[in-house]
Design a protein around this nucleic acid. Structure first.
Length: 766
DNA sequence: GAGTTTGAAACT
DNA sequence: CAGTTTCAAACTC
């Protein structure tokens, strides 16, 4: 196994190796950028799983001739089969048109066109070409079986895009990949001229087959490439790099998004750039769908990042959400595989960010804020929200609509293209500030994207080379953001991220190409932990009161929910960005103790909501499981066989439980009534002000109370005092005096009311 | 609001 | 894995 540079290791988490490959077809000879934009749409041929036969291994190394000072900031990779797909931003674009004979090792030679498109032409590899590379271009074509790589974002950093071919035999998936390590296509695109040569060993498709060392050092994004039986269609990589030239700060936050995995890089004085890799498949092209643990939950997602002022930027990012919605796997496929394949659909160029999701079951809301640093993804059926960091782009970018990539005002810059099928293992707990958009039925191509701000998330990153938490089990609401230098991971709750931006949401729904069974909606709205997803999202988070745990133990609900403490009553809190190191360690410690620590305790049963049960079961002894001490009761579920409680009364036929439920229902009704009454009252008050305010300003139709000005009140008081003095002078009894005063007060009121109907300036005369 | 109870999490 | 301790939320007064 070859060794990957440490920088590369740092850049990507180990779990990337655990991803499932995406198959890409072999390509015809290189094409011009214009031609690439006119690629043919993929057909609907059945798509083999990644376990299918591997294609001929190919090695592609890409490296733009970017200035050394330029660094890749962010990466958004998307794959699409749409022929019209072309991510268009004002940024430099990289067109990758690997037309590769299936068996011939090749080197993509990046060219920088006048329009700032980097055209990667396949070059026949010479015997010694595999190791020959210019600075900034790292190409490894060992035996024509491998690809290499180039650097990416940071100095010396590289991202290896591993594109495993689908082999000649259908398969057994990862095990097969192990058996045929040569059948991987590693695509690496880098941009620095000062890149260190990165050697990429044989790609391993299965993380389980990676040695620990490999896992630590080799960061690869695997893309299974499928060989089309009929014919190898041209594969076009359209890489759009959105460059933010504005708002450069001493430290800009950058995110490398690798197919759902969030990686961010903080790089000083470097504009964040979003690179979108769109792979346009020919009609014959087929993308292997990774074997899903939960094929029925497979979801195709097309994600497009948008530059605010860009007329159009379209990206199709098929994502595969599986594993109870906690994984987003990039997949590109055509729609014939019954459960695992969703036909890719074209994404028409529109001046809106286009995000499409298709899937057998999911109707998914995808909040996107590609212009900012975060994309939030809500996965139905999961109480988590997924957050994707992407590079922030400013409105300075001017993209162009159309199938052709726009030119960039920038010269070629280091770019990183990550095309991979990666587990998106960054569950995000429903952020309380998150706005949700109800999924809307979409037209055949239509998806609606809301606007978004361009706040830039700057995440302090502390070097934590030793901490590489299992992303699949990170606390909900966690993002991993590689920091600068020898970055570690900055674990950010989505909740926190949400607060830093106005999230944009994209309504994702079924389109003609993405049938979305109604079951998806049903699943998406299943209550979790007694609350529906929407409820959970809107439920205000309770402030914790931790004192001794530093809010870094699961005792702390904030920590357990993957949130930063905010507005809490805790003391000595470390659950914040200022203590990201400690927090990361604490998370790791929790995961070490219990890999499921941050997963929902209340899981959905086989038959739906009624079967929700506590994953571990409670252990109550005194509460009878009828108090909130009991996690089952708190979650409004009944105890099950997994519980080890004593004297449990939290079962279906329990009279105590029924009584409590009735009481609870009654209380809830009262609360609702009170809430409704308050709402109504507020509405009335608001309406009152609405009606009166214009009158006040206009001077007409004033309400009586508006005439009780300070002067009027003072005059009234003088009248009352005068009346009191008179009563005192005539030595009236107190009762009579009071009566006189009240009578005078009544007269004053009458005068006020009378004056209100006549003049704007009522006068009070005693 | 202070004190008590409770059970999960953490620890041994 | 079981027993004990720690901890913070739930609960009571």
């Amino acid at each position: 196994m070859d060794v990957v540079s440490p920088e590369l290791n740092i850049l990507l988490p180990d779990e990337i190796m655990d991803t499932e490959a995406i198959v890409m077809d072999d390509d015809p000879p290189a094409e011009s950028p214009a031609a690439s934009g006119q690629s043919q749409p993929s057909d609907d041929a059945p798509i083999p799983m990644e376990t299918d036969v591997l294609a001929v291994p190919e090695i592609v190394s890409l490296c733009s001739d970017a200035p050394p000072t330029q660094r890749t900031q962010a990466l958004t990779t998307s794959i699409t089969t749409d022929s019209t797909l072309c991510s268009t931003t004002s940024a430099t674009q990289l067109l990758l048109t690997p037309s590769i004979a299936s068996s011939s090792p090749l080197t993509l030679r990046p060219k920088l066109s006048a329009n700032h498109q980097i055209i990667l032409n396949k070059v026949a590899s010479s015997p010694g070409a595999d190791t020959t590379r210019s600075p900034g271009t790292t190409t490894i074509t060992p035996g024509g079986q491998k690809f290499m790589v180039t650097a990416i974002g940071k100095s010396g950093q590289s991202i290896v895009l591993q594109l495993p071919h689908t082999g000649s035999k259908p398969g057994s998936g990862q095990g097969e990949a192990k058996a045929n390590p040569q059948h991987f296509k590693v695509l690496t695109i880098g941009g620095r001229t000062d890149l260190k040569p990165v050697m990429v060993g044989q790609a391993v498709s299965s993380a389980s087959q990676i040695s620990t060392l490999q896992a630590q050092q080799l960061k690869t994004v695997q893309i299974a490439k499928k060989t089309q039986v009929s014919s190898a269609g041209p594969i076009k990589f359209i890489i759009t790099k959105a460059v933010n030239n504005k708002g450069l700060t001493a430290q800009t936050s950058v995110s490398n998004v690798i197919t759902g995995r969030v990686l961010s890089t903080s790089s000083p004085v470097t504009p964040p750039r979003t690179i979108t890799l769109s792979e346009t498949l020919s009609s014959n092209s087929k993308i292997a769908i990774s074997p899903l643990k939960s094929p029925s939950k497979l979801t195709m997602v097309s994600v497009a990042s948008q530059v605010p002022n860009s007329p159009q930027k379209s990206v199709s990012l098929p994502l595969n959400m599986a594993h109870l919605g906690q994984q987003i796997l990039v997949q590109q496929s055509t729609a014939t595989s019954p459960a695992k394949v969703v036909s890719s659909h074209s994404t028409p160029m529109k001046p809106v960010q286009t995000v499409t999701v298709g899937g057998p079951q999911f109707k998914t809301i995808f909040p996107l804020s590609t212009s900012s640093n975060v994309q939030q993804i809500q996965v139905p059926g999961s109480r988590f929200h997924y957050v994707r960091l992407v590079t922030a782009t400013t409105g300075s970018s001017t993209g162009q609509a159309g199938s052709h990539c726009t030119n960039s005002s920038m010269t070629a810059k280091p770019m990183v293209v990550n095309t991979a099928q990666v587990r998106m293992s960054v569950p995000i707990i429903p952020a309380q500030t998150m706005k949700q958009v109800v999924p809307k039925p979409l037209t055949s191509s239509g998806q609606v994207l809301t606007t978004q701000t361009q706040q830039r998330l700057i995440m302090p990153a502390t070097p934590l080379p030793q901490i590489q938490p299992n992303l699949t089990n990170l606390p909900p609401g966690t993002m991993l953001a590689p920091g600068s230098g020898n970055m570690g991971y900055t674990v950010l709750p989505a909740h926190y991220v949400t607060q830093l931006q106005q999230s944009a949401y994209v309504t994702l729904a079924s389109s003609s190409g993405f049938p979305t069974p109604t079951g998806i909606q049903t699943q998406a709205r299943l209550p979790l932990n007694g609350l529906s997803t929407s409820d959970a999202a809107s439920r205000p988070r309770k402030p914790c009161n931790c004192n001794k745990s530093q809010c870094l133990k699961l005792y702390c609900d904030c920590f357990a929910n993957g949130e930063f403490c905010q507005s809490c009553n805790c003391t000595n809190c470390f659950n914040n960005l200022e203590h990201e190191t400690e927090r990361a360690k604490a998370i790791k410690a929790c995961l070490d103790r219990n890999p499921e620590a941050f997963k929902p305790k209340i899981g959905k049963g086989k038959e739906g909501e009624s079967d929700r049960r506590h994953s571990k079961g409670c252990n109550c002894k005194r509460s009878g499981c009828l108090k909130n001490y009991c996690e089952c009761y708190e979650a409004k579920i009944m105890c099950s066989s997994t519980c080890k409680c004593v004297g449990c009364k939290n079962f279906e036929e329990s009279p105590e439980r029924k009584t409590l439920m009735h009481l609870a229902d009654a209380a809830e009704v009262r609360v609702q009534q009170q809430t409704a009454a308050k709402t109504k009252l507020s509405s009335q008050i608001s309406d009152l002000f609405t009606r009166t305010t214009p009158a006040i300003t206009s001077g007409g139709g004033r309400m009586p109370f508006t005439f009780v000005t300070k002067e009027v009140a003072e005059a009234t008081c003088e009248c009352l005092l005068e009346q009191a003095e008179q009563a005192e002078l005539i030595q009236q009894p107190q009762a009579t005096a009071e009566r006189m005063i009240l009578e005078e007060f009544g007269r004053c009121l009458m005068r006020i009311i009378s004056s209100a109907g006549k003049t704007d300036c009522p006068s009070i005369n005693c």
